[in-house]
Design a binder for these strands. Structure first.
Length: 654
DNA sequence: ATAGGGTTAG
């Protein structure tokens, strides 16, 4: 229009501004604002009103308020938009102030004004304010409509106010809203959040039709209850019925998988999603990336990264934090840092993701440096940051530094130590061999120690072969987590390392009585864009014969080099030969050898494991890294081990 | 011809 020499007037401009608001195009909107000032139509009330809306939508409340104050003719619509804008920002004080001023000036808020406030508070997480607004609305004689209800229900759910939720449900039925798709989705979501799984399907059934949004809410609700297979079942059924699935459906089911240990399924669903023609968006990627990180599927993670770059969503803070986390989990700590450095907007989650990465890699020096950078950049750390920092110190044996950060948490950062910080200190002391100090730390704790704290002590006792304190910690853990087989295994490891096989047998009997079995060891490795899962002692593997042959050859070389198998890690009281054989079946060894056989010479191997790496495997993989000239990354449930030239990044401190 | 409010995925 401008190019043709036509001059936009006060009738056209509001439409342009509305489009800017819809796209959240702040820069262009401001240019249009400038244009209106220059062309003298900025005093038009339609132009002004649309600009107020534009600034509110873009969260530029200062500009919105300034404009509002200068308006020639203020109206209810702009008043309520401004009030709702503050609510969207979570600024309840200003939201209420502006909202109440409406009445002082003789305006009456209308239903839309109330709804804007409810939706605004809901968006910013001020759930109680949202519910209060809903109640006040009724007190002031307004009847809530479909919009009010679908805005207030998520807030009710997040607060877990089941009785309010049921009341609203009754109101919905009485007023014939039970077929409105937004309301039905919101109701299902509310019941899911309040812990009522059965009600969810009932609401859906009452609607009398299959609606995709409502089904999406059901999938998420089921996943929230851990009913993962049911959630997947609903999804598959919709697929079978040729239901038009949207981006939320796919994202929900991918999130469901990546949050519940079905990582390979999540990757497969992402592929299917793209094949089906539904475009992933800035929410899909942070749901998918944890699946890549969980099993160190670096190629899949990189593909998702490229996808984000192509789609222009790599600057999103959620995408960015998920990328940092993924690269750190895949052993690519430098790439994680590159992503961090390239972000133009960062929040606390991004900083914590990076700090957590350094901790997982046992890079305490980098973690401390990064922690200082964080403060210099004006980002205040929270209790998560401190946990990572302390855990980094404990991983690499920086006992004194760690202790100092712990002591100064409250004075320097205003963060009161929580139970997880105590767990870090217990582990800090315990790993350093100061088991008695660790124990007295537990006794001095101002609150009840939890399983993490006792677990930290037990693991340290495992490292230092301390039977007495190990027994104390284990007994506590048996009370706190009677169904966790890991604690029984750790204690029997201690006994086995001292040759006390009677005790080992006793523990095995107790486990048997309780119906507990050692979690099977399981490792993953990505070879040529495909992720392979290897189970300990897995005989069904097609290449098993080749793997065992290679392992035997390696073991001959190792013995020549003076290595002897560390059979402490075998709990069965069997012959040494048999023990060696059992060690050979450990999933991390299988995965490493599988990688060597199938990946080009010299390329690094990335393995993840569902349990902690075994000491013998650790020694073997160190040897392999030198003998085969391979960098090998193994991430266990505790940290990263980076093997290179016969050494490991953990410095054998674990 | 021009201005306002909703659900389900992180």
């Amino acid at each position: 229009m401008l190019k043709q020499g036509l001059f936009p007037d006060a009738h056209v401009l509001p439409s342009v501004i509305k489009a800017c608001a819809g796209l959240l195009a702040v820069k262009i909107g401001k240019q249009v604002h400038g244009f209106s000032l220059a062309s003298g139509i900025s005093l038009d009330s339609f132009v002004q009103s649309s600009l107020v809306h534009f600034y509110v939508k873009c969260d530029e409340l200062v500009d919105a308020h300034k404009l509002f104050d200068n308006m020639v003719e203020r109206d209810v619509v702009s008043w309520s938009a401004l009030a709702a804008g503050y609510a969207r920002k979570g600024d309840a004080v200003n939201a209420r102030k502006v909202f109440n001023e409406v009445k002082n000036l003789g305006f009456q808020p209308n239903t839309v004004s109330w709804n804007g406030m409810i939706a605004g508070f809901n968006r910013s997480g001020c759930f109680l304010d949202a519910v209060l607004m809903f109640q006040q609305m009724h007190k002031h004689g307004f009847k809530s409509d479909g919009t009010s209800i679908s805005s207030v229900l998520p807030a009710i759910g997040d607060l877990g106010y089941l009785s309010s939720g049921t009341q609203v449900h009754g109101y919905v039925i009485k007023n014939g809203f039970a077929v409105d798709k937004c309301i039905v989705s919101a109701l299902i979501d509310m019941y899911g959040k309040c812990g009522y799984a059965l009600e969810m399907s009932q609401v859906l059934e009452d609607m009398g039709q299959v609606e995709v949004g409502a089904c999406n809410a059901l999938i998420t609700g089921l996943a929230r209850h851990g009913l993962v297979d049911k959630a997947l079942g609903v999804f598959k059924e919709l697929q079978g019925q040729q239901m038009e699935l949207n981006v939320v459906s796919w994202t929900s089911v991918i999130a469901c998988c990546s949050q519940h240990g079905k990582d390979i399924e999540a990757l497969e669903l992402f592929r299917e999603m793209q094949a089906s023609g539904v475009k992933p968006n800035a929410v899909t990627i942070p749901c998918l990336l944890p699946a890549c990180g969980n099993i160190a599927a670096l190629m899949h993670g990189k593909a998702a990264h490229c996808f984000s770059l192509r789609r222009g969503i790599s600057g999103d803070v959620y995408v960015g934090s998920a990328l940092i986390d993924m690269y750190a989990n895949c052993g690519k700590i430098q790439l994680a840092r590159c992503c961090f450095d390239r972000m133009s907007v960062r929040n606390l989650v991004c900083w914590n993701a990076m700090l957590g990465g350094y901790a997982m890699h046992g890079k305490a020096k980098e973690a401390i440096e990064f922690f200082l950078l964080m403060q210099r950049s004006g980002q205040k750390p929270d209790s998560v940051s401190l946990t990572s920092l302390l855990s980094a110190c404990s991983q690499s044996g920086l006992t004194e530094e760690g202790h100092r950060y712990f002591d100064r948490m409250t004075t320097d950062h205003g963060i009161k130590p929580r139970v997880e910080h105590y767990a870090c200190v217990v582990s800090l002391l315990g790993r350093a061999g100061k088991l008695e100090e660790a124990y007295s730390m537990i006794e001095k704790m101002p609150f009840e120690p939890d399983a993490c704290v006792w677990g930290a002590l037990l693991s340290s006792c495992r490292v230092h072969h301390n039977m007495s304190l190990g027994g104390v910690a284990a007994r506590k853990l048996f009370e706190l987590e009677p169904k966790n087989p890991g604690n029984y295994i750790l204690l029997s490891n201690i006994y086995a390392s001292k040759g006390r096989y009677k005790e080992v047998d006793k523990i095995r009997d107790i486990m048997g009585d309780k119906g507990l079995r050692k979690n099977p060891g399981c490792s993953w490795i990505e070879v040529k864009n495909k992720v392979h899962m290897l189970l300990a002692g897995d005989k069904s593997l097609p290449q098993m014969a080749q793997i065992m042959e290679k392992l035997n050859r390696l073991s001959i070389e190792m013995k020549k080099a003076g290595y002897s198998p560390n059979t402490d890690y075998v709990l069965q009281d069997v012959e040494e030969q048999e023990k060696e054989h059992i060690l050979c079946g450990h999933s991390e060894k299988l995965a490493v050898v599988f990688g060597i056989l199938n990946m080009s010479p010299g390329s690094p191997l990335r393995v993840t494991k569902n349990l902690r790496i075994c000491g013998d495997c650790h020694a073997v993989i160190k040897f392999i890294s030198r003998f085969e000239r391979r960098e090998i990354f193994v991430r266990d449930t505790n940290r990263y081990h980076h093997f290179k030239d016969g050494d490991c990044s953990c410095g054998d401190y674990w």
